[in-house]
Design a protein around this nucleic acid. Structure first.
Ligand SMILES: [Zn+2]
Ligand SMILES: [Zn+2]
Length: 937
DNA sequence: TACTCAGGGCCAGAC
DNA sequence: GTCTGGCCCTGAGTA
């Protein structure tokens, strides 16, 4: 049922129809890799909305005798009353916050004794979302049905953190993009479930109060199993009792039945009444009203409108209005239009519409980025805009005020500081991390920027003009952050640590001054791999950072945990009992070792940093090690500053320089000699782009299989050769993409030959087969090379000697899809954890494709390819234990590369004689006579 | 030679 | 018995 992609017009949003991983932008994936982060966000209304919603987590604090949990939820996406199910979720086994969108299994849910809700506007009165009572019964019975199709289980299956595990921190924005998309997908699917609940409640209330009927919806007719929800009114009160039944598979033969009863309060607070009157009158004074927060009473309906929906919780009372105009345009905002296939109805321009439901419920004013907004640190401050969202949207009263999102970009000017490469700092994490980001932004901009955390003035929020009319930074807005939130967060952290609370709760401005230079760039998540977090909190668990451990800054306990886990090989069998996605923080870090370990990995800890020989002391050199970073920095300094040798003596470090060479360290040839040399900075990545090659310049990692070690060695040969051949001087004039590709291939032919000739297995084939295989697979191999080494997410090839080819600028004619396709494959591969060992394996697998024409010993080739595949599979399984999707995605990516190469092959002509001559004599004949030309049509 | 850093090991305490 | 996390040891590299 999860694979259901039926997009029938179903009136009630259902959980599954929405899941299939299609964001709105997917219809134009071609743009995903060639845009800035802001543009990328704007491509998808869903992304944008999610972004808007999650940049300011609303804290829902549950206080019980056994629980003091902080739950971060998306306030603008989910009306408070919809937090009830979520609010109930944290339980003993899952202490701490529940990541957005992750429903812990029913078995772990527990009712809080009390519940309060804190937003940036202050503490919301409990009456707004009072939880009157809850009871829960559980019983385990033998499972007699097929797989549980319960929607809440889908929520877990769709756990974004599970996807996260597949995503390496590549240093580019891709990680964040992928992560965000995963979360958006997750969120959308969850939203459908919430809508079901919402619909049911609305329906119930509508009936109960004789309000205009909702469109009739037969939930049970859904192909997907809807939530098993029942509403009933509690006698002698306004409260509604909601019963939610769930089935959670516990094991193969057992299924856990859970029944949760929520009693929801629905007494309108007095304050709301006057507010509504005010609004109604304001609305009445205008001609073209499309919708408003009309009150719940049908008698107050305007003639031109039809009130269709009401809500249970008073402050969220709202109406969906059908106007003739909207109906004409088929853009009625109602349940129908908030369906999965059209979750965000795009509105006619100049329609000031107060959205009524679901995704649109909590939108913000739309603003266009203003380029002039640049902070002192060089980071532009951009209010995010989604052009499809219409011109303006009002703020729902009493919900969440407007806020700007800070986007930081790679700094191009030089600086003394090791300036981190920024991607959107707020996008990536919800929950605690967002909180941290929120704090950070608040701190760093306080007093300087009008980074408003306050709502727009009322008149602005009520009547919006076109987006360009709106000043995103009204000068009169107070920049003062909500003190409650800032302090509250600090306290909650402080209370968990053995630090004096006063340290933590001192005014943020002071803290900022004392710790961070004014111009210091905000540290984003990726940066703790380069420099310690500003708050000195372990990115994994929030504890105090004790130093740089295994590739990232982390606390002592996470360091110890990682070390122990590897040493004991426990990581091979770790499995999350909750299906992944457990929160890992100071309090909960001991709850789930699997998720903690995954978090360690995903945030940057390196398996390679653990010494197999267990040698103490010394310096390590693995990708991302402090030593390596230092060496790179020195190299860069030398390269950029002066040819005069530094006074520091440069040693050539070995992998683990301990004086003794572990026996496992020596294998294969070369011993990482000084030529292709260890510690030499990636030749291909010398200036821009991520330094993926760094790892390959170190000596062999002892833990890797022999084949991979040899492949890595051979890769060095290729890189060494390739850099010399990479010259674009003659390329300047070429405007044709194919021509450029051919040019590139011709220049890479000789390095490829030298590389291939040294490859294990391949070199044992007869030379004719070798030539044919190389000839047939050159394009796919080079494509993979480009993806691994030099393609950035903007579709540029970052080449040695600071050469950059912007592929997007080419007149690609019939290949206009090519670049976006390749960048999207690159995303896929990097997301799936394409590391150097995997990469070299894939190259070999590509080369050893047995279906190349005229190959004599195709069986032998096939056998070799299978061997390479096995090694590759093994590597992925070990590198990403428990991540079954990675393998599949890598193979899919490979297949996609082959298809592209095939397409290119059809458009090009090979001069086989030249290929053969190059191969046999290792001469660069291509410069005289090209190996490959593109077909001129 | 003292110091720093980032590995590893040890061990009391929690579970 | 296993796991945790604070503390200390170790040794390469640096000043
Ligand atoms: Zn930690
Ligand atoms: Zn877990």
């Amino acid at each position: 049922m999860t694979d259901k992609t039926d997009r029938d017009c179903t009136p009630v949003p259902s959980g599954d129809g929405h899941i299939p991983g299609k964001l709105g932008v997917d219809c134009a994936p071609s743009q995903s890799g060639t845009t800035s982060d802001i543009e990328w966000l704007q491509q998808s209304p869903e992304r944008y909305q999610f972004m808007q919603a999650t940049d300011s987590p609303l804290l829902l604090r549950l206080q019980g005798t056994q629980l003091t949990n902080t739950v971060a939820v998306a306030p603008r996406m989910i009306p408070p009353r919809m937090m009830y199910p979520r609010g109930l979720l944290p339980a003993i086994g899952h202490q701490g916050a529940v990541p957005l969108g992750v429903f812990p299994p029913a078995s772990t849910r527990q009712a809080p004794a009390s519940l309060s809700c804190i937003s940036r506007t202050g503490v919301l009165p409990a009456s707004h979302f009072a939880l009157d009572s809850i009871s829960s019964t559980q019983e385990a019975v033998p499972q007699h049905v097929g797989p549980s199709s319960h929607l809440l289980d889908h929520a877990r299956l769709q756990d974004p953190t599970a996807v996260k595990q597949e995503m390496p921190l590549t240093g580019s924005g891709q990680y964040y993009r992928s992560l965000l998309d995963a979360k958006v997908r997750m969120h959308l699917s969850e939203l459908c479930k919430i809508q079901q609940l919402q619909y049911l409640l609305d329906h119930h209330v509508a009936q109960q109060r004789s309000l205009p009927e909702l469109p009739v919806v037969d939930i049970s007719s859904e192909a997907q199993q809807p939530l098993d929800l029942n509403c009933s009114t509690v006698s002698n009160s306004n409260n509604i009792l909601v019963t939610l039944k769930e089935q959670t598979p516990e094991s193969q033969d057992r299924i856990l039945h859970t029944e949760t009863n929520l009693e929801l309060s629905c007494v309108p607070p007095a304050s709301l009444e006057s507010h509504q009157d005010q609004e109604t009158s304001e609305i009445d004074s205008e001609e073209e009203i499309t919708s408003s927060v009309l009150d719940m009473c049908p008698k107050k309906k305007r003639n031109t409108c039809t009130t269709e929906l009401v809500n249970v919780v008073p402050e969220l009372y709202k109406s969906v209005i059908r106007t003739p105009e909207l109906q004409q345009n088929n853009r009625v905002v109602s349940w129908e239009t908030t369906l999965p296939q059209n979750p965000l109805p795009s509105l006619p321009p100049d329609t000031s519409l107060r959205h009524s439901h679901s995704l649109n419920l909590l939108q913000q004013p739309i603003m266009k980025p203003q380029s002039g907004l640049v902070t002192q640190g060089g980071r532009p401050l951009l209010p995010l805009v989604h052009p499809d969202l219409g011109t303006s949207l009002a703020i729902e009263k009493g919900v969440v005020p407007e806020m700007y999102v800070e986007a930081s970009f790679r700094k191009t000017n030089s600086s003394d500081e090791d300036v981190p490469e920024h991607v959107l700092s707020l996008v990536a994490e919800v929950g605690c991390s967002s909180k941290r980001n929120l704090d950070t932004i608040t701190k760093s901009t306080s007093g300087k920027l009008h980074q408003s955390l306050n709502p727009l003035p009322r008149e602005k929020s009520m009547t919006m003009g076109s987006c360009s009319d709106i000043n995103p930074l009204p000068p009169d807005l107070s920049p003062v952050p909500n003190k409650d939130i800032v302090e509250d967060v600090s306290v909650s952290h402080a209370s968990l640590k053995n630090k004096p609370a006063s340290v933590e709760t001192k005014p943020v401005a002071q803290e900022e001054q004392s710790q961070v230079p004014e111009s210091k760039t905000i540290i984003t998540e990726l940066d703790f791999r380069k420099q310690p977090p500003v708050d000195n909190k372990c990115p994994i668990c929030g504890d105090r950072v004790s130093g740089y451990h295994y590739g990232m800054y982390s606390c002592e306990s996470c360091k110890g945990f990682f070390k122990r886990t590897i040493h004991s090989k426990r990581h091979e069998k770790l499995k999350c009992t909750f299906g992944g996605g457990c929160l890992v923080d100071l309090r909960s870090r001991k709850q789930c070792a699997a998720c903690r370990f995954q978090k360690c990995l995903s945030l940057g800890m390196k398996l390679e940093a653990i010494r197999r020989d267990r040698q103490r002391g010394g310096r390590s050199l693995y990708e991302g090690s402090s030593e390596q970073r230092r060496l790179i920095k020195i190299k860069e300094e030398q390269a950029t500053q002066s040819p005069v040798p530094k006074k520091r003596k440069q040693r050539q470090p070995s992998n683990h320089v301990t004086g003794k060479i572990s026996s496992t360290c020596s294998s294969s040839t070369g011993n990482g000699g000084s030529k292709a040399g260890p510690s030499s900075v990636s030749p291909c990545m010398s200036e821009p782009g991520p330094s993926r090659l760094a790892v390959k310049t170190e000596p062999k990692s002892p833990g890797l299989p022999q084949l991979i070690q040899e492949l890595v060695e051979q890769e060095k040969v290729f890189i060494h050769q390739s850099v010399g051949e990479c010259c674009l001087s003659t390329l300047r004039e070429e405007k044709n993409l194919l021509e450029t590709i051919c040019h590139f291939v011709n220049h890479q032919m000789l390095p490829l030959v030298k590389w291939a000739k040294g490859l294990p297995m391949y070199r044992q084939l007869v030379i004719e087969d070798q030539i044919r295989l190389l000839h047939k697979n050159v394009l796919s191999i080079l494509c993979l090379n480009a993806i691994f080494y030099c393609l950035d997410h903007a579709g540029r090839l970052l080449l040695p000697k600071n050469q950059v080819i912007d592929l997007t600028t080419f007149n690609a004619a019939k290949f206009h899809q090519l670049v976006p396709k390749v960048t999207s494959i690159a995303d896929q591969l990097h997301t799936a954890g394409l590391d150097l060992p995997a990469f070299v394996c894939l190259k070999l697998i590509l080369l050893l494709s047995p279906d190349a024409p005229m190959v004599q010993s195709s069986e032998q080739v096939q056998a070799y390819q299978e061997t390479a595949q096995e090694v590759f599979f093994d590597h992925i399984t070990h590198a990403q234990p428990g991540n079954s999707r990675a393998l599949g995605n890598l193979m899919l990516g490979l297949a996609a590369i082959e298809r592209i190469a095939q397409q290119l092959n059809q458009e090009t002509v090979w001069d086989v004689a030249v290929v053969e001559r190059t191969f046999r004599h290792e001469e660069d004949v291509c410069s005289d006579r090209p190996c490959i030309r593109y077909r001129v049509l």
